[in-house]
Amino acid sequence: MEVTEQEINHLAMLSNFSLEPSEKDALKKDLSGIFKYIGKLDELDTSGVEPTYQVFEMKNVWRADEIINQDADREALLALTKEERDHQIKVPKVL
């Protein structure tokens, strides 16, 4: 399957990448080859087969509703951000 300009732009939008034209062309070529390869799966008959999303038999795993101390507190977490203000994370204005 050949990836079109429009498709690569759509995937870049979904992925939130601002791609340079040159990189776009390279990715178009790469993805075309990869889609061709994974397209091989069409041959396999999977009718009536249940999907597998996880490879264990565990079910109903949940925890008690109790507050416990966390591995990192607010100061430790906010120290990781580039811009902090009044204990909040500063970002460019959201329109």
């Binding site: 979904l14 992925s15 990189e23 990715l27 993805l31 889609f35």
Partner: peptide, 12 residues
């Protein structure tokens, strides 16, 4: 980027 875009393709 390749993998993210493949992933977003197969999920879209």
């Amino acid at each position: 980027k390749r993998r993210i875009m493949i992933g977003n393709f197969v999920l879209s």
